[in-house]
Nucleic acid binder design. Structure first.
Length: 146
DNA sequence: TAGGCCATCTGGTCCT
DNA sequence: AGGACCAGATGGCCTA
């Protein structure tokens, strides 16, 4: 989604709150630096959004029709990581020798295996319940393994 | 139409 | 000093 705010184009922004340049005293210098800062900020946010897109690609999705919001992407990534971590820990605890067992566990958390939930309403109680039962991550309980 | 989500601008703060 | 990062404000788009 490439949205461009019509009232603020890149070349005209900054002129609204024009102030004098601290060094030269010219409004042009101030405006130029503000515009440069705006451009950098746009670029930075684009980089951030690119990172979000890459994260969405590797995280379980509810369906193809609607992508996760940024907040939901972060929450899902967090829960997904915890689920994978749990699989590894369980595998070690059970001293599982079988490669098959590990493969089976990973199959369960592959994104494509969540497509069956695409019919569930987005953000519905069902979806939320599923979220918590499958990825019962709680922010308060986060412990970073050392 | 209200609410959620988002892009953009902006000023402040921190860092190099 | 200039750039990176952040948070608040603003306003557009979309959906229920």
């Amino acid at each position: 989604m490439v949205y461009r705010r019509p009232s603020f184009t890149g070349s005209e922004s900054g002129s609204e709150s024009e102030s004098l340049d601290s060094k030269t005293g010219s409004p042009e210098g101030s405006t130029r630096r503000r515009m440069a800062a705006n451009a950098r900020e746009r670029k930075r946010m684009q980089g951030l959004n690119t990172a979000f897109d890459r994260l969405r690609k590797v995280v379980p999705q509810w369906g193809q029709d609607k992508q996760l919001s940024k907040y939901e992407t972060l929450q899902m990534a967090l829960s997904y990581i915890m689920a994978l971590n749990r699989i590894l820990i369980d595998g070690q605890r059970c001293n599982a020798p079988s490669r098959q067992w590990l493969d089976m566990q990973f199959d369960c958390v592959q994104p494509e295996n969540y497509q069956c939930f695409s019919t569930i309403g987005y953000g519905s109680p069902d979806q939320q319940e599923y979220m918590h039962s499958s990825f019962p991550y709680q922010c308060d309980g986060l412990q970073v393994p050392t």
